[in-house]
């Protein structure tokens, strides 16, 4: 009935796993994303292009249990950068400070937590980033690799708007089909009147047009 204690063997560090992936998967682009928290669950940041092949490799090497899949939103950040330079003004050397804004483009991210059932290891965290938050939002779907991503990737699409390529059934999960926005994004504006839900019926939609904020 019970197999008792876990198999004792040396657990690979995140760097070892990265080295193995780079060695065994052609064209893999993987980097380590450090986690400063005391739990030290570091993660692997995988490029979109090599996402599916790396996931397949990980599944083959024992990470068969994809427990959790979720999205994270990083909005665009505007940073004010101060440039200091010395210039000669009226024959004197002066230090001039120039300020200009640098926009760090944001992105959306999908995070997966993997476990190995037999070896009882984990979690191995892998993450993939989209290009931006507006039009370059495609990521490869990992549902063909781990079936558990089926509903969870639908949920990410529903709440964050990441478009998973290769998902067998890419529909909204929790919100209704006619809903057009992505509520878990940081810049989502809540409707100001919950009683006034626009429904597919034309008459209600007309009344709703232009009413309040955050709705079409």
């Amino acid at each position: 009935m019970e197999t008792g204690e876990s198999v004792s063997q040396a657990v690979d560090s995140i760097e070892d796993i990265r080295e193995k992936i780079l060695k065994d998967v052609d064209g893999a682009d993987v980097s380590v994303f450090e986690n400063a928290s005391p739990c030290a669950q570091h993660s692997l940041l995988i490029s979109r292009a090599s996402g599916l092949s790396v996931a397949n490799y990980l599944k083959r090497s024992g990470w068969d249990y994809c427990s959790n899949a979720t999205g994270v939103d990083y909005p665009d950040k505007v940073e004010v950068v101060k440039d200091k330079k010395t210039d000669v003004v009226d024959g004197e050397e002066k230090e001039i400070v120039e300020e200009h804004e640098v926009v760090h483009p944001g992105n959306l991210e999908a995070v997966y937590h993997l476990y190995a059932v037999v070896k009882r290891e984990g979690p191995l965290v892998i993450r993939m980033k989209t290009g931006n938050r507006t039009d370059d939002i495609k990521l490869p779907s990992l549902t063909p690799v781990w079936r558990s991503c089926e509903l969870q990737e639908r949920e990410i699409y529903d709440l964050y708007g990441i478009d998973f390529e290769g998902h067998p059934d890419m529909r909204r999960l929790l919100m209704w089909e006619e809903f057009t926005e992505f509520p878990m994004r940081k810049d989502y504006v809540e409707p100001d009147d919950y009683e006034f839900e626009p429904t597919p019926h034309g008459e209600v939609l007309e009344r709703a047009a232009g009413y309040g904020t955050g709705r079409s």
Binding site: N35, A36, S37, P38, C39, Q41, S67, N68, T70, H113
Partner: peptide, 19 residues
């Protein structure tokens, strides 16, 4: 402090985790 964590327990219905 800044960082992230996934914690899970064996709830009666299965693996309940918080990320």
């Amino acid at each position: 402090k800044p960082g992230e964590c996934y914690g899970r327990i064996e709830a009666p219905k299965g693996e309940l985790g918080f990320y």
